[in-house]
Design a protein around this nucleic acid. Structure first.
Lengths: 149, 149
DNA sequence: CTAGGTGCAAAAGGTTTGCGGTTAA
DNA sequence: TTAACCGCAAACCTTTTGCACCTAG
């Protein structure tokens, strides 16, 4: 029932952290596990609350530190959805995000082309990173709305 | 030399504000003028500093209030670029933004299709708004980099 | 052994709110 | 006339920082 980090994901994490010059600590392993366990794009606060169940003394500062190390090691990414708190996901494939205006959930959406070719840039502009966010109503909320109607 | 709001833009603003149930105040007119005068996607803080030249007593709270009224009246939009302060632009055409990682400037980029067709949404998902942000190096910084090299 | 990480508390940055006085409609 | 708005200050939320202690490498 996914009670802890798998040996596999720990080895992967350990290698990625040390490659990027970070240490492999139990807090970082656990924060990574929290992200893998429920891929609902939690905020730092939410990660903190979940991590506390196994590490009651963990602090917000450590959660931010761990999330930062994970992002810089390339095993997680920070997702910006409007102006709220940053959210985090361990899905490293090229994808974008759908934010439901009704239930506030965030969903991963495939991004054709890896984003390249989405937009014509003016001459001389070099794109390094594409961020696409779609806002609207998710399938569940659409259905719920239709039913209530 | 664009010393003040034109009659035209004031009339337009006045009508849009009242349609949305907002009052037409001198602060709102001026904040709108500030956005039109230099379309460099200023933050609220930057708008505040520019607005102060004509309204020395204006406060940040009022600037936020005015910007909010402008956005809700549909004459300006709030632009989220990563996790920094919100930026504002009076370009209401469907477009997206390019953020230069070197000089930190934000540029308007045309968005083909109005964004629709960028992404295949799963069944049942309804998109209301697309937000595309491209990060990289702008033309000026590209040229500068090449020259320095 | 020691550079880097942890937990705590305090600060910083951006935004929102409560309130008494002012003003557009 | 009066609900909305203004300016001010304080609160709020998210994130960062400084510091003494601890630990992975």
């Amino acid at each position: 029932m996914n009670r802890g980090p798998s040996k596999q994901s720990s080895d992967h994490l350990s290698e990625r952290l040390s490659t990027s010059g970070f240490r492999f600590t139990s807090q970082r392993r656990h924060v990574y596990h929290v992200l893998l366990a429920k891929r609902d794009h939690p905020t730092a606060e939410e990660v903190f609350l979940r991590a506390k169940r196994a590490f009651p003394d963990i602090s917000m500062a450590t959660v931010y530190n761990c999330l930062d190390a994970l992002v810089r090691s390339g095993v997680a990414r920070q997702v910006t959805v409007d102006r709220g708190a940053a959210r985090f996901c361990p899905n490293m494939s090229e994808h974008c995000h759908f934010h439901c205006d009704t239930c506030d959930n965030v969903f991963d959406i495939e991004l054709p082309d890896d984003g390249r070719g989405l937009v014509d840039l003016p001459k001389g502009f070099k794109a390094a990173r594409f961020e696409v966010a779609v806002h609207g109503v998710c399938a569940d909320c659409s259905a719920r709305r239709k039913r209530a109607h």
